[in-house]
Design a protein around this nucleic acid. Structure first.
Lengths: 292, 292
DNA sequence: TTGCTCCTCACGTCACGTGAGGTGGC
DNA sequence: TTGCTCCTCACGTCACGTGAGGTGGC
């Protein structure tokens, strides 16, 4: 009875296609699915049944997460979808989805770890750990092995003093923040190899240091670095370090480089060798995902 | 030298915190992180180091995918984050992420299936398959077993004629589309149980049919239904059916109910029993995910 | 005349990125 | 005076949902 050119008003057509009328208007506006006919006086949109298959094609592609603009491109007047073009888009989409999935899985793991942490302790961690990328940086530094953790403060002071003195002799101006690096595979309290460093301009990199009193090197960039901000006396920083290590363990990560202690509130000691009372410190630990 | 109340302009602070100045302005506007002090004449924002830990907290929460508004709520003046509130948000977030992950995994599987399909055939499928939910619908129907597929057209015509005649006798008005259901576990070409149905008003449901010439029942809703639109002669609809079954198999799904053939372009036969030439048909197959 | 459907704006979504256009301190 | 940094708008993002305000056919 109804022939195939029966026309439908937008409401009927939207029911046939199981989509909202708003969507049809939107697709009309994008040129993605124009009604077969639009009344020039009332602006009513009239659709025909053959447009249903085009709508279906659109919905199928949309269901894969392909943006409407690309679908428009794909379905442009050249009737048959170019398989090659479609393949390209699908490959892009595949890559995106794989990325997205990884990111979400990571997030879910973080959320679960924090939930578990709350269940166990009833309280959130006292420090907030952020995972972020850090860029490479050029530093001048000196190293020493410290026998026991009690001597750490003393050694650090003298190492920094030594470093600044040498840099001054060589006419190199320290640029910014101090960074203390702890070279230890695991947390230990004895025989800790420590390195005190300051940022310097990149152009000093590679210049020989004739008296060998310090080294210029590049701290490598790290895509995944767990970081936290600590404010308080230096001799309580170990609590924060332990918190960071605990976080890393709880999230199934492993350290991928020495721990970095950034002195954000300026030098640890003033010109008289007096230690700052409650410095602001950022602890950074490069990490990697352990399989599991 | 610098005491901990050293103030930073937005640029310096943004470098310390590894975020953009725009973000800091945004957070200021949201009341999420107000600068320690804002110059009332120049509107310059001045930050102090203690704000860095708050920034860190924000970034940590944001990294879990928690919206800024909720973070604002969480960090509201009551200094210590309420562990209970946080737990609630994390649980919500956990649920969201699990959902998201499922959806993305599904999408990825679809994308992969289509890519594979292109690799194999060099051409996309001639039909676009959409997976969508379909609501429950009330229908009046009659059934029969058809011995061979060649007789299908004949039987369907007589079944529909019979159905319409009975409905008229009972004063029930068919509401819309015809639906032919194929009750077969797998694709077969002999002894097919077929059911012809039309939509009727819901209030007819449950009313007894005294002469038993037809049945009123509800087609169940189905969250996952693979659907395609076919336009062409009735006797070539089998090609479309095979395409749909192939799609379902390729995507590791299994049928979860009879195949439905919706006659979108009106009745299959006119009042003289003449078949429509090129009807528009939607094929629907309820599906379920097979393990794997 | 009352419902029903249709129409065209236009705001809101989320967390900023990216100009535009202009000002203050070294 | 020239750069550098800072400021305040305000648009754009993606695919619509959701009114607001108004019109045509049964």
């Amino acid at each position: 009875m109804q022939d195939k050119r029966t026309v439908f008003k937008i409401g009927e057509f939207s029911r046939l296609g199981q989509v909202s009328a708003r969507m049809l208007r939107h697709y009309d506006q994008l040129g993605l699915l124009k009604p077969g006919h639009t009344d020039r006086f009332t602006s009513y949109r009239y659709y025909t049944l053959d447009q249903l298959s085009r709508l279906h094609r659109i919905l199928a592609l949309k269901g894969l997460g392909i943006p409407l603009e690309q679908i428009t491109d794909l379905l442009r007047k050249d009737q048959d979808i170019s398989a090659e073009k479609l393949r390209g888009m699908l490959l892009v989409r595949q890559a995106e989805l794989t990325q997205d999935l990884q990111a979400k899985q990571w997030q879910l793991a973080e959320v679960n770890a924090r939930l578990q942490q709350i269940e166990q302790e009833g309280q959130p961690l006292p420090y907030e750990v952020v995972v972020k990328p850090v860029p490479a940086q050029t530093v001048a530094s000196v190293r020493a092995v410290v026998a026991t953790i009690a001597e750490m403060a003393f050694y650090c002071r003298s190492l920094y003093a030594q470093l600044y003195a040498s840099l001054e002799r060589h006419g190199i101006e320290p640029l910014g923040t101090e960074v203390t690096l702890y070279h230890a595979e695991e947390y230990t309290e004895t025989d800790i190899e420590v390195e005190t460093a300051v940022l310097v301009d990149r152009r000093h990199l590679g210049k020989p240091v004739n008296d060998g009193t310090y080294t210029i090197a590049e701290l490598p960039a790290s895509d995944l670095t767990a970081a936290l901000i600590y404010q308080g006396p230096f001799d309580e920083v170990t609590a924060a370090i332990l918190a960071l290590l605990k976080y890393v363990a709880q999230h199934d990560h492993a350290p991928a480089g020495p721990l970095r202690e950034l002195h954000l509130s300026g030098r640890a000691h003033d010109e008289h060798g007096v230690e700052q009372e409650a410095p602001v410190i950022e602890l950074q630990l490069p990490i990697q995902h352990t399989g599991n």
